Amino acid sequence: MPIIVNLDVLLAKRNIKSKELAKIINITEANLSILKSGKAKAIRFSTLEAICEALSCQPSDILEYVKEKE
């Protein structure tokens, strides 16, 4: 998949556990885990905004586009 989710990297840099972030942004740990693993098919802008606010980051710190090789 050409969209890479770097949320686990950002959490490690900020020294925040997934459980803490899930509580701060008011989503379940299971949904956060799906997002972290890159298995999510979509993300709500409100969730992305909450993550960015909680981690003091930009969406581009979390999501990265990598062109697939042909």
Rank of each mutant, 00 (worst) to 15 (best):
residue 44 R to A: 13
residue 57 C to M: 02
residue 3 I to G: 02
residue 14 R to C: 08
residue 26 N to R: 15
residue 66 V to K: 15
residue 13 K to M: 14
residue 41 K to N: 08
residue 69 K to D: 15
residue 51 I to E: 04
residue 42 A to L: 09
residue 36 K to G: 00
residue 2 P to I: 04
residue 1 M to S: 14
residue 5 V to P: 13
residue 18 S to H: 01
residue 5 V to A: 10
residue 57 C to A: 11
residue 27 I to H: 03
residue 57 C to F: 01
residue 9 V to R: 15
residue 9 V to T: 13
residue 63 L to F: 15
residue 23 K to W: 02
residue 62 I to M: 10
residue 22 A to F: 01
residue 37 S to W: 06
residue 13 K to G: 00
residue 44 R to W: 03
residue 46 S to E: 12
residue 47 T to Q: 06
residue 52 C to F: 07
residue 16 I to D: 00
residue 70 E to M: 05
residue 61 D to H: 12
residue 43 I to N: 02
residue 52 C to V: 05
residue 41 K to L: 09
residue 28 T to Q: 09
residue 10 L to C: 06
residue 59 P to M: 13
residue 42 A to W: 07
residue 32 L to V: 09
residue 26 N to K: 15
residue 4 I to V: 15
residue 55 L to W: 05
residue 2 P to F: 04
residue 47 T to R: 10
residue 24 I to K: 11
residue 70 E to G: 07
residue 39 K to R: 15
residue 18 S to W: 00
residue 21 L to H: 04
residue 66 V to F: 00
residue 4 I to K: 15
residue 51 I to K: 05
residue 23 K to L: 12
residue 70 E to F: 02
residue 22 A to K: 07
residue 69 K to Q: 10
residue 3 I to K: 06
residue 34 I to D: 08
residue 53 E to P: 00
residue 41 K to T: 12
residue 50 A to L: 06
residue 37 S to G: 15
residue 40 A to R: 05
residue 18 S to Q: 14
residue 45 F to H: 06
residue 1 M to F: 03
residue 25 I to Q: 02
residue 47 T to G: 05
residue 55 L to C: 01
residue 36 K to E: 12
residue 60 S to L: 07
residue 54 A to Q: 03
residue 5 V to Q: 09
residue 60 S to N: 13
residue 38 G to I: 07
residue 61 D to S: 12
residue 67 K to A: 15
residue 53 E to I: 10
residue 24 I to F: 03
residue 57 C to H: 04
residue 11 L to Y: 03
residue 55 L to E: 05
residue 43 I to V: 15
